[in-house]
Amino acid sequence: MASDAKPVLTGGCQCGAVRFALSAAPVRISICHCRMCQKASGAPFAAFADIPNEQFAWTRGKPAAFRSSSMAERDFCAACGTPLSFRRISGSRIEIMTGAFDRPDMVVPTLQYGTESRLGWIGTIVNLPSKTTLQNYGPEKLGEIANYQHPDHD
């Protein structure tokens, strides 16, 4: 990414030790249900924004990496453990976890992969009873919680 380019999207880990910026919109945004992505994210699926390397830069710190297979590495923050990316070894693109963006609402998935491992209940979660964080904790308890995560901006 050119250093003088105005970032289109930014993000980083929960402690702020690792930050990134994109100089163009992602090429593709997808969800992967494969078992490797489930384990890497600690979640039922992983959501990724696919970005060409030349349009991406780590702007603060450098992530640690784990070689999760013979074809890929997954970056994460060594300080707080936040999963950050999936990269094909010697590939021309990086796939950033959408939850790591400062504005995850701007990276909307349009495609799913690894559906052979999709959990059967995924399609029904929209119908589960739901509460906001305020409804769950109440105003008094919520007011007592101190957030130690990096804010969603620099």
Rank of each mutant, 00 (worst) to 15 (best):
Ser69Ile: 06
Arg118Cys: 05
Pro63Ala: 12
Cys77His: 06
Thr110Ile: 09
Gly12Met: 01
Lys141Ser: 08
Tyr148Lys: 15
Arg19Met: 00
Gln55Trp: 02
Thr10Val: 02
Leu142Gln: 14
Ile145Lys: 14
Cys37Gln: 02
Gln38Ser: 05
Asp75Met: 14
Thr110Met: 11
Gly114Ile: 10
Val18Gly: 07
Gly42Val: 04
Ile145Val: 15
Leu111Val: 14
Ile96Gln: 08
Arg60Glu: 00
Gly12Asp: 00
Ala2Glu: 07
Pro151Ala: 14
Glu95Asp: 12
Phe86Thr: 07
Ile29Trp: 01
Glu73Lys: 15
Ser70Thr: 09
Leu22Gln: 04
Ala46Cys: 09
Ser130Thr: 09
Ser30Phe: 05
Phe76Gln: 04
Arg103Ser: 09
Arg28Ile: 00
Gln112Ser: 13
Thr98Ile: 06
Leu9Arg: 12
His33Glu: 00
Pro26Gly: 01
Ala24Lys: 14
Ile125Gln: 07
Met36His: 03
Gly138Phe: 13
Leu119Cys: 08
Met36Leu: 07
Ala100Thr: 11
Val18Ile: 11
Gly91Tyr: 08
Ala64Lys: 13
Ala40Thr: 07
Phe56Asn: 03
Pro139Gln: 14
Arg19Ser: 03
Phe20Trp: 04
Pro44Trp: 03
Gly61Phe: 06
Pro151Leu: 12
Leu119Val: 11
Asn53Met: 06
Ile89Phe: 08
Cys77Tyr: 02
Gln14Pro: 00
Ser92Ala: 14
Gly12Gln: 01
His153Asp: 05
Ala64Pro: 00
Gln38Lys: 12
Pro7Thr: 08
Ala40Gln: 07
Ala49Leu: 01
Arg19Cys: 01
Ala43Pro: 02
Ile31Ala: 07
Cys34Thr: 08
Gly114Met: 09
Ala24Asp: 01
Asp4Met: 12
Thr124Glu: 04
Arg118Gln: 10
Thr124Asp: 07
Ser41Leu: 06
Pro129Phe: 03
Gly138Tyr: 12
Asn147Tyr: 10
Gly42Ser: 05
Ser69Phe: 06
Ser92Ile: 09
Phe20Thr: 03
Arg67Met: 02
Ile31Phe: 07
Ala65Arg: 11
Ala24Ser: 09
Val126Met: 12
Val8Ile: 05
Pro83Arg: 15
Phe56Lys: 05
Ser3Ala: 14
Ala146Cys: 08
Gly42His: 03
Leu134Thr: 15
Asp154Asn: 13
Ser85Phe: 01
Leu111Tyr: 13
Arg60Ser: 00
Pro63His: 11
Gly16Gln: 04
Ala78His: 11
Ser92Phe: 08
Ala146His: 14
Arg60Gly: 02
Ser68Thr: 10
Arg103Leu: 04
Met1Val: 12
Glu73Pro: 03
Asn53Glu: 00
Pro104Trp: 03
Trp121Glu: 06
Val107Ala: 15
Ile51Ala: 03
Ala72Gly: 09
Trp121Arg: 14
Ala72Gln: 10
Asp152Leu: 13
